[in-house]
Design a protein around this nucleic acid. Structure first.
Length: 117
RNA sequence: AAAGCGAAUCAGAUGAUCGCGCAUGCUUUUUAGCAUGGGAGGAAAGUCCGAGCUCCACAGGGCAGAGCGCUGGGUAACGCCCAGUGGGGGUGACCCUAAGGAAAGUGCCACAGAAAACAUACCGCCUAAGCAGUCUGAUUCAGGUUGCCGGUAAGGGUGAAAAGGUGCGGUAAGAGCGCACCAGCAGGGGAGGUGACUCGCCUGGCUUGGUAAACCCCGCUCGGAGCAAGACCAAAUAGAGGGGCGUUUGCAGGACUGCCCGUUCGAGGCCCCUGGGUAGGUCGCAUGAGGUGUCGGGUAACCGGCAUCCCAGAUAAAUGAUCAUCGCCCGGACAGUAAAUGUCUGGGAACAGAACUCGGCUUAUGAUUCGCUUUAGCU
RNA sequence: UGGGGCGUCGACAAAUGGCAAGUCACGGGUUUUUGGAGCCCGCAUUUGGAGGUUCGAGUCCUCCCGCCCCAG
């Protein structure tokens, strides 16, 4: 049984960490999503999500965050450990459903070289 | 049936799998794991008002400033709500209403118009005493007519608004000049109502433009800031205070040199303690002007008694994803004369996310139910 | 959370409560062999939206919508 949980220790929480990832990490840009990534000191993958006010109102933003989190949660066991990720949503993400979003994120992670085979 | 008016209710349900955050219990060095419980709204929204709570300020009073403004009631309070009064809109159900004062003062009222506020006189109407011109008759005079002077504001025209309206009398023409009715004002007293006010009576002078969401006057209310309030714990670094080491036995560091020794300048150094305080964390923080039921008071808003319940608490910020079944709405096909209904199939399900907590307001929005109005048709 | 400002033609931008200026752009004409420049003419009907006050509202009042800025 792979680890399906998504506890707090698997998230990027502090503002400083976000800034560090934005400034010193690498990034992959797609139409619907921008992925920043940076090695961390631990042996787990951590995720941070950023959805700006341009995307929509509070309900829409929460919905997108939950979807991104769900995609991460269900595929987490396949990702290479020891990295911090930050997902920044862009406006076209609103047109995607769950499967399309999974596919997009898979592509981005493959290009970043963070998928285990 | 169509169009409309008012009020109320709900915000799909159940189950499965995988997750999230909180509380409690157990395991546990923390992390973490397991079990149980409960986990968004009618607007959680906008942040437009009012309060609680916290800190700061504070003898008392005034000015300034801001807000409010028909009456009575409700409330912790309100700019909110309820019940009424006056005014306005609609055929109507019903809706709207910042609704004190213009006779305390100031300002403004474009264009048009004679005149826009101590009234005035453009076109007019009237008059013929006086002055001037002119016509007819004529002897110096008489009569007519025009202008000035004088009287007047009926009619016309302008404007959003023109100094009460209509009628009769009156007059040279007219005019509240007089009278009647109506509107409005001031004063008096009567009936009803807690009151705003309503109904009707008498007397008076005949009459007073609009605008205060222009300045203003009158009456009432208001100390300021906000949970990032505020309280507590508190690392690293720098600095502050105190003590110790040390100045004769010379610490850190520097100079003489490429380096060591040595010489020399040197308390600016090292260690410990204290309090302030930053990052970070804990509390504030979920028992409340609380919910539900019932009984009573009140037209109602609301209030009171009794019983019962504990019902979100995050902080890069939980309340989700996938699937199944049922229910709702819309469309299509088939069965059915049609309707009702049944079967199959496709689609849809709004606005919107707690962030210290309440009471309102405003705005967004999907359905359903009930009552009522107008119009048309049938009985 | 508290405070402040803005919204007028496609762009910029003015307007005491009394006919919504002006510049650029755009369209048409004129001039020129053609183009440019110049000259002439045209171009706001919802002054972000909805109500209200007023005879009359871009302006005054109330409530919304959008954008921007400041403090912590």
């Amino acid at each position: 049984m792979p680890n399906r949980g998504f506890p707090k220790s698997s998230r990027v929480t502090a503002k400083k960490e976000y800034q560090s990832i934005y400034q010193t990490g690498n990034k992959v840009v797609y139409r619907c999503v921008v992925l920043y990534f940076k090695p961390n000191q631990s042996d787990r993958v951590r995720l941070g999500i950023s959805v700006s006010k341009k995307i929509g109102n509070a309900v829409v933003r929460n919905q997108q965050k939950r979807l991104l989190r769900e995609v991460f949660r269900l595929n987490r066991h396949r990702y290479r450990p020891g990295y911090d990720l930050v997902c920044v949503a862009r406006k076209p993400i609103l047109k995607l459903n769950f499967e399309q979003l999974t596919e997009q994120l898979e592509k981005a992670l493959t290009r970043a070289g963070l998928i285990n085979l």
